[in-house]
Amino acid sequence: MSQVIVKVTGRKKRTDYKTSSSGVFEKVKKERQEKNKRMLSEYNREIRKVVNSQ
Rank of each mutant, 00 (worst) to 15 (best):
V24H: 06
T9V: 05
T15K: 06
K13L: 00
V24A: 07
K37I: 03
F25H: 05
V28A: 03
I5G: 08
K7I: 08
N36F: 04
G23I: 01
F25K: 09
K35S: 07
K30D: 07
R11C: 10
R14P: 13
K35F: 04
K12R: 05
T19Q: 02
N36R: 07
R11M: 07
K30Y: 04
K30L: 03
R32E: 01
E34Q: 07
I5P: 12
T19R: 03
F25Q: 05
K18H: 15
K35C: 10
R32W: 04
K7N: 13
E34T: 01
V4W: 02
V8K: 03
K18I: 15
Y17E: 15
D16P: 00
Y17Q: 15
K12N: 03
S22N: 11
I5C: 08
K12I: 02
K35V: 07
R14H: 11
G10R: 13
K18E: 08
N36S: 06
T15A: 11
Q33A: 08
T19W: 01
S22Q: 14
R11H: 13
V28T: 08
K18R: 15
T19N: 01
T19D: 02
V6K: 10
E26Y: 13
E31P: 00
F25N: 07
F25A: 09
K13T: 00
V6L: 05
I5A: 09
S2K: 10
D16I: 01
S20H: 13
D16R: 00
E26S: 13
I5N: 15
K30E: 05
D16A: 00
S22V: 15
D16E: 00
I5L: 09
V8H: 02
S22D: 05
R32S: 04
N36I: 05
F25S: 06
K12Q: 04
E34A: 06
R32V: 02
S2D: 14
K29H: 04
G10D: 09
V8Q: 01
D16Q: 00
T15S: 08
G10A: 14
Y17V: 15
R32H: 05
G10F: 09
S20F: 14
V24W: 04
K13G: 00
K30W: 03
G23T: 07
I5W: 14
G10Q: 14
Q3I: 12
G23V: 03
I5E: 14
R14Y: 13
K7G: 15
T15G: 07
Q33K: 05
R11L: 09
R14I: 14
E26W: 15
S20W: 13
E31N: 04
K7Y: 15
V6C: 10
V4P: 05
Q33I: 01
K27G: 08
K7E: 12
V6N: 05
